[in-house]
Design a protein around this nucleic acid. Structure first.
Lengths: 219, 219
DNA sequence: GTCTATACCACGATAGAC
DNA sequence: GTCTATCGTGGTATAGAC
């Protein structure tokens, strides 16, 4: 079989699969993993109901594919940014926070899809309490966690290992929560807050988290 | 009808209903709202499948009852604690954070059920991305948000209204995320973190969030 | 009023025909 | 690769027993 043939077949093979991946990503972002049925996905992707099971094995594995395609590159980018930081200069703590936050903001802003939808989907991944999803997200996380803990403790030597771990967890939670709800703040605040820009949110997140990260300890 | 009769009937009326509420709270905490079926709930509560629909109308309204029973008292306690704070003294910012966090910790520690389960359920409520649940949680939240924003801006006058709103949101996210995952940190950190106490988590949350809350602004 | 039995439709999964 | 048919399980609605 020629390379051209193989690529042609491979292209047609993945056509339906890619369409399913794309459509389900959009629908999951809007309504969540549970509430989107395979029937809705396959209808929107103009595929048969059984197509998901054929190409991915199960709905769970389709979700896994969507999650990993989303979270994987972000974590790689985090580690890359962290490596570039000069941990000796002042302001290094803020750089650590930015290395954690910015890959998400970048991916949203550069996205093939609109910012909001990307944020929703990312937030659903991080803040999911479904063990089938958290286990996927957390699978890649030990390395990220360990590297960020080490960097944080180099910059802020007064922080114990336990506390550093917790602070990374606080950071992830604050980010995920605000990514999902920032566009609702104007409603929840009953008009008293008028934020809707993702960049504005990013700056305030960095400000807030940098202060928290470098805080002294109670003991 | 005598009062005794009415109370007797009222007690028997609510017997099944209360049992359903109690059992479903436990199951929801462990496995989430979606994955727990009405059949599992009614079996554990030794009631008929149709009992949920009779007493609550639907699964959604059962969830609503569980959520409101959990979140309502916490928010009332938050407002009560906030009112007691002397906003003039130094350390008032930390008191604001404590007024937000401690009602959850108190409710968990005092609980009829064990801490962990309460934390899971509370975190599921706050961090849920299901609009049917977030709308329930957020229904009571505008008042809490407004009062905490006002208090924060009195203590830290350099913070704009928009930023104050965001910081309360960051706080809620950090709390919800860590409440759900703190008992997993020892695994995710691959043994490098040995935290498992809820009180220890609370102290570090307060420390971290107090610093973030009172941080200067970038502009 | 409370509870039971049962029927209904949508869901995810899968086997087998094409 | 794709499609149809079918299975077990989910939430829901209701008629009728007590």
């Amino acid at each position: 079989m020629s390379i051209a043939q193989r690529e042609s077949i491979s292209a047609s093979v993945t056509a339906t699969k890619m369409r399913l991946l794309d459509v389900s990503g959009r629908l999951f972002a809007e309504s969540g993993f549970d509430s989107v049925s395979l029937r809705l996905i396959t209808e929107n992707a103009e595929a048969n109901l059984a197509a998901v099971n054929y190409h991915f094995g199960s709905k769970e594995e389709l979700i896994a594919a969507v999650v990993e395609k989303l979270v994987g590159p972000v974590n790689q980018r985090r580690l890359a940014l962290l490596r570039q930081i000069n941990l000796d200069v002042s302001g290094a703590c803020q750089s650590i926070v930015e290395a954690f936050i910015d890959p998400v903001i970048e991916a949203a802003s550069r996205g093939d899809e609109e910012d909001q939808r990307f944020c929703k989907l990312m937030s659903r991944c991080i803040a999911s309490r479904d063990e089938r999803i958290t286990s996927l997200v957390l699978r890649q996380f030990p390395e990220v966690l360990a590297k960020f803990v080490d960097a944080l403790r180099l910059v802020c030597p007064w922080i114990s290992s336990d506390v550093a771990h917790m602070r990374i967890m606080f950071m992830a939670g604050a980010m995920a929560h605000s990514l999902f709800h920032y566009d609702k703040l104007v409603i929840i605040s009953e008009g008293r807050c008028e934020i809707s820009s993702l960049d504005g949110l990013r700056d305030e997140l960095v400000q807030f988290l940098s202060a928290g990260m470098s805080a002294g300890t109670s003991k």
